[in-house]
Design a protein around this nucleic acid. Sequence first.
DNA 1: TTCTTTGTTTCGTAATAAGAAACACCTGTT
DNA 2: AACAGGTGTTTCTTATTACGAAACAAAGAA
Lengths: 258, 258
Amino acid sequence: MPPHGSTSTATRIKSVETSLTIIEELKRQNGATVTELAAAIDVSKGTVHKHLTTLREHDYVVNNDGTYQIGLTFLDIGGYALCQFDGIKQVESKVRELADRTGETVQFSTEQHGRSVVLAREAGHKGVFSRARLGKRFHMHQISGGKAILAHLPKERVQEIIDRHGLPAATDATITSETELFEELECIRDRGYSFNKGESTDGLHAIGVPLMGPEGDVLGAFAVAGPSHRMHSERFKDEIPDVMRSVVNEIELNLTYS
Amino acid sequence: MPPHGSTSTATRIKSVETSLTIIEELKRQNGATVTELAAAIDVSKGTVHKHLTTLREHDYVVNNDGTYQIGLTFLDIGGYALCQFDGIKQVESKVRELADRTGETVQFSTEQHGRSVVLAREAGHKGVFSRARLGKRFHMHQISGGKAILAHLPKERVQEIIDRHGLPAATDATITSETELFEELECIRDRGYSFNKGESTDGLHAIGVPLMGPEGDVLGAFAVAGPSHRMHSERFKDEIPDVMRSVVNEIELNLTYS
DNA sequence: TTCTTTGTTTCGTAATAAGAAACACCTGTT
DNA sequence: AACAGGTGTTTCTTATTACGAAACAAAGAA
């Protein structure tokens, strides 16, 4: 007899969710104390403490002078997940090559659960700022790489992703209309690469080129990003895309025979 | 009244530990099904299923065609933890520089919970194999970087680490005696850098140089590793150490004024 | 088709996670 | 030095809930 008339059996485990919430909050706050966490997520200090003790036991969190922080076990497991990605070594070296040849910031991302995840990243010598970071997630429709990937996913998959995550705006230029997005994707498919003109960050332009697997499936996308004052006309429309396509061609050939 | 006469109150949360065990097992097995996991960690299928559902909800695991895999959320959080490390950008660029100048594999690692964790890694053009990987953990006494760090930790801290993790052997050359280790550390402190002569992997030699913070605390260590047939005599004993020390000097200066 | 194996759900109960409050510990203040 | 105010930690009790067993569903294979 469940006292609170909810559906009797839950399909998720509450205490695990609490732990995950704590981790999320710890990341959001850049570290926190027991009391801060207890207040933030509305559970008792004692409970928070027990969760932290459990997580600390396995190095998922660490305690530096009283404040708890995210531990490097996440990097361990995340690094493992990264290595699982087929051809990641080659991708990393191509990202480097592109950064060297263009001088701009280059990243490679793939799709997981409808979000774009950064798997490799390299800042060129012109060293532009960038919000990207290993493992960082973005909405796919907001960035060049994400759009390049979407353009090569089955339409129903794209629809699923839209349904799940929506089309939130990051700037005034973000595509927020479903039909507009589908038109854009069509366009990208024809052209072979995608543009991002301040759709994720004001003043930031980028070019995205998809990486296709041997079976015609899209594995991810490379993106070269830089400030709009450097990324325009010929260089933006042709030169950099050409470099990118030749680099991606190489890696696609390598992946086929390995 | 606890039926099993154990100490009544636990300080850890069992269901969270189960989830963590599942994640660990998932990593160990390179993905697994519900039934496989249930068998491996000895809990019921139903329980495993509920854990996986909870973890999947937050993208900690993903389900590819029936088998569950580690998800990229770990990379997200791990990447965050990595960025928290002070001066990581400079460290990464110096690792690159060292890889370019020596042609060997270079890594930077720090200490957490008595283990050495790889924070940056770069293979030089001579491209030697290496078990290292972003986030990978090693026993500190088995590797050059780890020993370089230990040499600059307070003695009681080193003792703590030994007590917690022991001195397991990886090869015949691994240091397994406490007194021998302390002598070696003394030696490293005098010399300023450390050697690894096949102590972690047969045929692999490496040099470790500590990175010291402004307050005389050790932040981590760089290591240059290569096959023993390339890493010997002058090059091993002087040339590479000199390059490393000059690079580390630079970064130490930069860190002081930033 | 039927049989086998897997993933998922249901359900009752025994285990246990969570809160409240006491305790311990530190730090700064008066 | 004593104290006050804030931590983190532990204790204890109860209501919650996580667990296993078994039923159910779904998907291949024979």
